Simulated scan of single mutants.
Amino acid sequence: MRTEVVIIGAGPAGLLLSQILNRAGVSTVVLEKHSREHVLSRIRAGVLEWGSVETLRGAGVGRRMDVEGSMHEGVSLGFANEGFRIDFTARCGRAVMVYGQTEITKDLYEAQDALGATIVHEAMDVAIEEMAGQAIVSYTTGRTRQRVTANYIAGCDGFHGVSRRSIPADRRTEFERVYPFGWLGVLCETPPAAPELIYANHPRGFALASMRGPMLSRYYLQVPAGTDPAEWSDAAFFDELRRRLPHKVAIRLVAGPSVEKSVAPLRSFVTEPMRYCRLFLAGDAAHIVPPTGAKGLNLAIADVVYLAEALIAQLRDGDRRALDAYSDRALARVWRAIRFSWWMTTMLHRFPDQTPFDQRIQEAELDAVATSEAAQTVLAENYTGLPY
Score class of each variant (00 low, 15 high):
residue 299 L to S: 15
residue 310 A to W: 01
residue 301 I to Q: 08
residue 232 W to I: 05
residue 259 V to C: 12
residue 307 L to S: 07
residue 288 I to L: 15
residue 313 A to V: 03
residue 229 P to W: 06
residue 225 A to S: 09
residue 248 K to M: 10
residue 290 P to Q: 07
residue 210 S to F: 00
residue 235 A to Q: 15
residue 267 R to I: 10
residue 252 R to K: 15
residue 311 L to Q: 07
residue 301 I to M: 11
residue 258 S to L: 07
residue 228 D to S: 14
residue 305 V to H: 08
residue 301 I to A: 07
residue 252 R to P: 00
residue 216 L to I: 01
residue 264 A to F: 13
residue 278 R to Y: 02
residue 215 M to W: 09
residue 270 V to H: 09
residue 254 V to Q: 13
residue 230 A to F: 07
residue 218 R to G: 00
residue 290 P to T: 11
residue 304 V to K: 06
residue 268 S to K: 10
residue 308 A to R: 03
residue 247 H to C: 06
residue 298 N to F: 07
residue 227 T to R: 08
residue 297 L to W: 05
residue 300 A to Q: 04
residue 275 R to P: 02
residue 303 D to M: 11
residue 265 P to S: 15
residue 281 L to R: 02
residue 246 P to K: 04
residue 307 L to K: 03
residue 270 V to S: 13
residue 269 F to A: 12
residue 313 A to P: 14
residue 243 R to D: 03
residue 249 V to Y: 14
residue 263 V to W: 05
residue 242 R to F: 03
residue 291 P to C: 03
residue 268 S to M: 09
residue 266 L to N: 14
residue 241 L to T: 08
residue 286 A to E: 02
residue 234 D to V: 05
residue 228 D to Y: 14
residue 288 I to R: 11
residue 276 Y to K: 10
residue 211 M to C: 02
residue 278 R to I: 01
residue 279 L to S: 00
residue 259 V to S: 14
residue 314 Q to R: 12
residue 244 R to M: 00
residue 236 A to V: 03
residue 221 L to N: 04
residue 265 P to W: 10
residue 273 P to L: 10
residue 233 S to E: 11
residue 226 G to M: 03
residue 303 D to N: 08
residue 301 I to T: 07
residue 210 S to C: 03
residue 286 A to L: 09
residue 297 L to N: 08
residue 255 A to K: 12
residue 247 H to Y: 10
residue 214 P to V: 01
residue 270 V to G: 12
residue 294 A to V: 08
residue 249 V to K: 06
residue 250 A to S: 04
